[in-house]
Amino acid sequence: MELNKSKQHPSQMLITALYYILVVISAFVVLVPIIYLVMNSLKLPRDFLKVPPTFLPEVVTLKHYASLFTKAKTLKYFTNSLTVTSVTTFVTIILGSFAAYGLSRMKLSKHALGMVIFTFLFIRFYPKVTTIMPYFIIMRKLNLLDTVWAVILGHLGITIPFVTWLMLVVYNDLPYSIEEAALVDGATPIQRFLMIIFPMTAPSVASSAILASFMSWNEFLIASSITRRDATVLSIAVASFVSDKGIQWGQMAAMSLIMILPMLLFALVAQKYLVNGLTFGAVKG
């Protein structure tokens, strides 16, 4: 097909041209806002009010970043987010894949399995805003209000059912014969899981881990209901610029960028697993 490229029919050429135009438009729509955010984080305050606006900063300044890290406790927010996300992801993967494996090997009746899957779907899609008041009240009673542990617990309630649901499909597809050899050797279920099954399904585990970490890092609703000051995570820090009087555009842009940059890079590196996880959840789940 590529051979007769030079002798393209005019209508074919038109289609090719249209294709490239659409490539450019797509890239433009996606990239320009993101680059604009980067530019805004480097602009002096006076540049924001310019009419017509300028895309590039006239003078590049790092003062927004500097003041975020000196005056605001951005470093602390960042470490809070990092702690919440890594602990949540780690615990989720362990408990979620354990539960999924157990469920898949229990040989539940069709009806019971249906109930389990319905529960997972329900937890994923019921309005989370329903439970934030109880969370607030529970965490107040447990004296965990405004701690990273409260945020972690809140996130685990969402990520564990989600990952269990994803991994359940994986383990259900795994033929039982693989484990039979180990069964004869007298390996306990836990040994079997850790030595054979878990390593075999590593790619799916990676996909689940990525989705769980995105959920946790980007989460706002739960975090905003149970943190006030000490346990502030990045999503709260970004949102805090909104209710401020006289928005500080530069700092808002810089803070947003600090929050999204790690995930953008992560998505580029682990794109394959991200896409797998997403399609898996929707197409197969």
């Binding site: 980007n218 706002f220 990045l234 970004v238 909104v242 808002m252 947003s256 999204i260 953008l264 992560f266």
Partner: peptide
């Protein structure tokens, strides 16, 4: 993959 809260700002 951008956090919705940052997409808003």
């Amino acid at each position: 993959v951008i956090a919705p809260v940052a997409a808003g700002t």
